[in-house]
Write a protein that binds this DNA or RNA. Structure first.
Lengths: 229, 229
DNA sequence: GCGGGTAACATTGTCAACAATCGACCACCC
DNA sequence: GGGTGGTCGATTGTTGACAATGTTACCCGC
């Protein structure tokens, strides 16, 4: 769900994936921030959080340092840690950064992983169609997120993947905060993703990059329409 | 030096930048990794490191979690933390990621911050010229790094900046590991950077992106020439 | 009302001890 | 003899309590 787990064939036995508690706690906090359980700007009392998560302060602090590094929390020494707040400038920045990463991922895909990408992305896109037809907004957002996670994953670039994960969490956080006002022309959203898959399948790099840029601009406009300024 | 500090005009008084000890320790470790004091693959005994840095294990562990998140360390639970090792695939990946980030930074610069960028980048480029004429390889590498830090900084994108910082540390780590074998056609290196500044000054986005891509490819070739495979 | 001082509060940093896990080494049994 | 299983030492992971430090809010004199 969070993009780190691999897609394993069942039955294959691989080295069991063991995470440190700090990593688990970090994942939990990321989810909580993503889905708004920890609203932007809110302070994280570490004593309270520690008891609520059932761990002691040590691992919790380690986890929070990770999120600080990711930019999801910001620390004011001797005052506390706060969930990052996104203003309009941040949202713009977020989308230029996303464009930078996903554009590069697209190039890698078209050049080296086309067939695999089409297969996996089509599946994700199908989920979007199904969610849109059901009118389930949350599932549509999930599928959207999964689509972009997949896009970066099949580029087979660990660094792009790492960078994208943070950006997608921020994007989701943003969407969660605005989910009421988010108008969401569902059909347009689905179509845009379909267009991306088609361009990959056609192997047309220029078209793909143009559509991706367009997609990001549209998404940014949709968000900005909901923002105060 | 490490890219987070702002370039403040002297006399401007801003909120003092106070760092938590974890942040300081993280910076120290980053430098140590960058310059090879902690060679790739080496294990970090936390007891020893803690005493050597004069802090207790708590903040040290927090700092190391940050570096894990950055990908500079990788953790094997109950076994220890190890400095990441870069193979040929990693170096390739590193440069595609750098290209993604710096390309985007260049676009922002040409569109919004041209004059400022030319001023700051020219200064950095001048340092490269001076270092090259002196034949000082370390200073040349420093100036090179500063150039690219500046490039991303003047793009005024916090996220691009954050992503670039990690990538530049890895690049520097890579250069340090190979510094003996690195042939380094100094003149070509200097010329390429000059070409970037010129393209920015001319406002020619196409030319700039082409030159940046070329620059990355050249750098990658220089590195790959030194690598076993 | 305003500035300075003070005291309570919260958070951070530190420490020492305990539990869990791993790698190595060695005795043991088939 | 080769493999099995167990013990030992070392290191990591975790915990709770304590000290240090900065911040906030309040009170007082002017």
């Amino acid at each position: 769900m969070l993009g780190i787990e691999e897609h394993n064939h069942p039955g294959e036995l691989e080295p069991v994936q063991r995470k440190s508690t700090a990593a688990i706690v970090a994942d939990q906090l990321r989810s909580a921030i993503m889905f708004g359980s920890l609203p932007p700007g809110s302070q994280m009392g570490e004593a309270e959080l520690a008891t609520r998560l059932g761990v002691s302060r040590g691992p919790l602090r380690e986890a929070m340092q990770r999120l600080v590094q990711e930019g999801l929390l910001h620390s004011e020494p001797h005052r506390g840690l706060f969930v990052a707040t996104l203003d309009a400038a941040d949202v713009r920045d977020l989308y230029t950064a996303r464009l930078a990463v996903e554009r590069s991922a697209c190039e890698q895909i078209v050049r080296h992983h086309r067939v695999e990408a089409v297969a996996e992305l089509s599946a994700a896109q199908a989920r979007m169609v199904s969610a849109a037809s059901k009118g389930d907004r949350v599932e549509l957002t999930d599928a959207d997120q999964e689509f972009h996670e997949t896009l970066v994953r099949v580029s087979r670039s660990p660094r792009l993947q790492r960078m994208a994960q943070t950006l997608l969490v921020e994007k989701r956080m943003c969407l969660t905060a605005l989910q009421d006002k988010y108008p969401a022309d569902k059909q347009a959203l689905v179509d845009e993703h379909r267009g991306l898959v088609d361009a990959i399948e056609a192997g047309d790099e220029q078209l793909l990059l143009a559509r991706l840029t367009e997609h990001m601009n549209d998404a940014l406009d949709r968000l900005n329409g909901s923002l105060p300024r």
